Amino acid sequence: MRTDDLSRRRVLQLAGLAAATSIAPQAFARAAPPTPSVLCRDAWGAKPPRPGGTPHTPVRMTIHHTAVPLGDNANAPARLRQHQHYHQDTQGWIDIAYHLSVDRNGNIYELRRPELVGDTATDYDPTGHFLVVCEGDFDKDPITEEQLNGAALAFAWAAQRFDIPTDTLAGHRDASHDTSCPGANLYAHVVDDDLKNRVDGLLAAGTVDLRTICGPEASKAVADIESGLR
């Protein structure tokens, strides 16, 4: 092959590489990571809580899963509305059972007031438990790094606010004999102290600034989640 043919081929190869490089960020774009904030109830479309509830002070931390596959993470806000409907209208509880929820991308949602005892259909008393639920069925689904980090952030905030020792962090199954919650794939991160270590790392780094956002900022965040952008 002649030298000028080799040069021409090399130019074409470089041009093709440049074109491929220019479109790669779009082809492999991922949802933007969430900011460290809690999306308020109004933003995800919660109904008002019913009157009542039992006051308590959280003294331990317990992680749950919803035991229902999430599918696309864009389903998360609608799934919360379904949970609340089931908990209020079928179970007869005052509100959705947990205090905070975390979706697959690490977004954190405001649920029941943490100063009120959560609810359960299993054989344990959730009085004194700060309850975080991860959306998904982790007997079937893998748990993402983003969801683990979101749960750790939620627990670190609670540990700081209520002075809860991090060695109280446990799975729902540790308090109840009739459930596999929070699912094998998530529970593995409880058993080996990975989740606790993430919480401890956040607390060691300083004040955990986890603010609740509402209004247009939170509505935009939920719209982005439902569009697959966050």
Rank of each mutant, 00 (worst) to 15 (best):
V133K: 01
P216S: 14
C181D: 15
R211Q: 15
D103M: 02
P182F: 07
I164F: 01
D178F: 03
A188R: 14
P49A: 13
L14D: 05
R161K: 15
E145I: 12
V59Y: 02
H189N: 11
R8T: 08
G150P: 14
C214K: 11
N105H: 08
H99W: 01
V133E: 08
L70N: 00
S180T: 15
C134R: 04
R113E: 09
P36V: 02
I213R: 07
P55N: 10
G183Q: 04
H85E: 10
A78V: 10
G228L: 02
W157D: 15
H85F: 03
H87G: 00
D174V: 06
G228E: 07
D224Q: 13
S176I: 13
P36T: 08
V222C: 06
N149A: 12
C181W: 02
L100S: 00
D95M: 01
V59M: 01
W157P: 14
I108P: 01
R60Q: 12
P58N: 10
R104S: 05
R112C: 02
A15V: 05
C181S: 15
P33Y: 00
N197W: 04
D89M: 00
L169I: 15
K220L: 15
P142F: 11
R60T: 10
A154Q: 11
R104W: 01
L153M: 14
G206Q: 13
V68M: 09
R10T: 07
G92H: 04
T54A: 10
A151C: 13
P48E: 03
G128P: 05
D178R: 08
G52P: 10
A188D: 12
A221K: 08
A218D: 12
V208G: 12
L80H: 07
E145H: 13
A74S: 08
S7I: 13
H189P: 11
Y86L: 05
R2Y: 05
D137V: 07
N107F: 00
D163W: 09
F138G: 01
W93T: 03
T127Y: 00
P36W: 02
D4R: 10
D141I: 12
V59N: 07
N185R: 14
